[in-house]
Simulated assay, not measured.
Amino acid sequence: MPTETPPEDAARTIVTRVAAIRDVELTALPPLQETIDVDSLDALLDGKFSGTCTFTYADCTIRVGGHGRIRVSRRLDDSTIDTAGQRRQRRRN
């Protein structure tokens, strides 16, 4: 069944999580629209997409999956710290 997630909800979720993980006010972050088309986020979350889109916003890695999952990880040097506070080594190609 398709997920009904308006783009402003996905955008709000991303910006809120990034602000929390970076410990800054929402207004300290650049507009998300300057990084990605927020209308496209809605298309990813409509339940018809089964892949994942990954992008960088405000020194964080954002991973949006077609299953409705939004994951935010802070980029620090060669590792990331995710919203659960776990440090992971960044993959190198």
Rank of each mutant, 00 (worst) to 15 (best):
T5R: 14
T5V: 07
P6M: 01
P7K: 01
P7D: 00
E8H: 14
E8I: 07
D9N: 13
D9K: 15
A11R: 11
R12K: 14
I14L: 03
I14F: 03
I14E: 05
V15Q: 13
V15N: 06
V15T: 15
R17T: 10
V18P: 06
V18K: 09
V18W: 00
A19M: 05
A20G: 10
I21Y: 01
I21W: 00
R22A: 03
R22F: 00
D23T: 14
V24K: 14
V24P: 03
E25S: 15
L26K: 15
L26Q: 13
L26T: 09
T27V: 07
T27G: 07
T27H: 12
T27I: 05
T27C: 04
A28E: 14
A28M: 05
L29R: 06
P30S: 13
P30I: 08
P31N: 12
L32M: 05
L32W: 03
Q33G: 10
Q33C: 13
Q33I: 13
E34Y: 08
E34D: 13
E34P: 02
T35E: 07
T35N: 05
I36M: 00
I36N: 03
D37W: 00
D37L: 00
V38W: 02
D39Q: 13
S40G: 12
S40T: 12
D42A: 14
D42M: 09
A43E: 06
A43P: 03
A43I: 10
L44H: 05
L44R: 04
L45E: 00
L45C: 02
L45G: 01
D46P: 10
D46E: 07
K48T: 11
F49E: 01
F49G: 02
G51I: 08
G51H: 00
G51Y: 01
T52Q: 04
T52W: 02
C53D: 06
C53F: 03
F55M: 02
F55W: 00
T56D: 04
T56Y: 08
T56C: 07
Y57F: 11
Y57P: 00
Y57N: 12
A58E: 04
A58Y: 00
A58K: 09
A58Q: 10
D59K: 14
D59N: 10
C60I: 01
C60L: 04
T61Q: 15
T61W: 12
T61F: 03
I62T: 10
I62Q: 10
R63N: 09
V64D: 01
G65W: 01
G66W: 04
G66E: 02
H67D: 15
G68F: 04
G68L: 09
R69E: 11
R69D: 13
R71C: 06
R71V: 08
R71Q: 12
R71H: 13
S73K: 15
S73H: 07
R74K: 15
R75M: 14
R75C: 08
R75D: 10
R75H: 10
L76I: 12
D77S: 10
D77T: 11
D78E: 11
D78H: 09
D78M: 09
S79R: 15
S79Y: 13
S79W: 12
